[in-house]
Amino acid sequence: MKKTRKPKSITENGKKPAQFRLLPAVLLSALAVGLGYAVLSLPSQASGLSEPVAANLESSGVSNPVTAVLLNFRGYDTLLELGVLLLALLGVWSLGAAPKRRESSPGLVLEMLSRLLVPLLILVAGYLLWIGVHAPGGAFQAGSVLATAGVLSLLTGWRLDTRFSGLPLRITLVAGLGVFVVVGIVLIPMGGRLLAYPPSFAGALILLIEAAATLSIGITLAALFLGGRPETGGHS
């Protein structure tokens, strides 16, 4: 918390001088002790919300409690969180165009490996998405794997065709958030509440949302890796 002003002199290793390190160390040790004490004072037995989750798992449309919480019980959080992701991308894009990389040959091994790995990764992503309904997995995990595929391709010099880097790319990026919002809104006249899935097709809706989210997350993360706006075919 003492991060007020930085001293004029900074030591060679990028750290502040000793006298500026000692005080935080002492204070933070005290903080750690205090926090630790607080943590330890918690009751050793607590079920949290696991019971109501288990009780309502039936009507959530999925059988994996984490997915149920994530996309149904606390789906609103997840919706906003997709917003955060999109926002980060917007922020990065607003900083300017993607830095130009020196075009170097990725090397034979990498090239071969990427050709092998990318389809596999996409497949794994699909699987993770699918299994998320029942077991650990889901949109974020799947999206991350998808993003790996994208990053790998980018590292090997692949670039999105400028034909697709305009509106099509943007649509893909917002698909997750968009589908989520649209589903949530559409449900209002039907179920009466935002994001209140009717139990009968809750599962299907969740899968739909997750699928769109996976795509968006994957592409977004890959785009973030690029560190800036991609070149587009149309306007700047």
């Binding site: 606390r74 789906g75 509440r193 935002l194």
Partner: peptide, 13 residues
């Protein structure tokens, strides 16, 4: 007060 998703306080938002 509006329960998003229709779940209500402890479980939902």
């Amino acid at each position: 007060r509006y329960a998003v998703g229709g779940w209500g306080a402890p479980l939902g938002i």
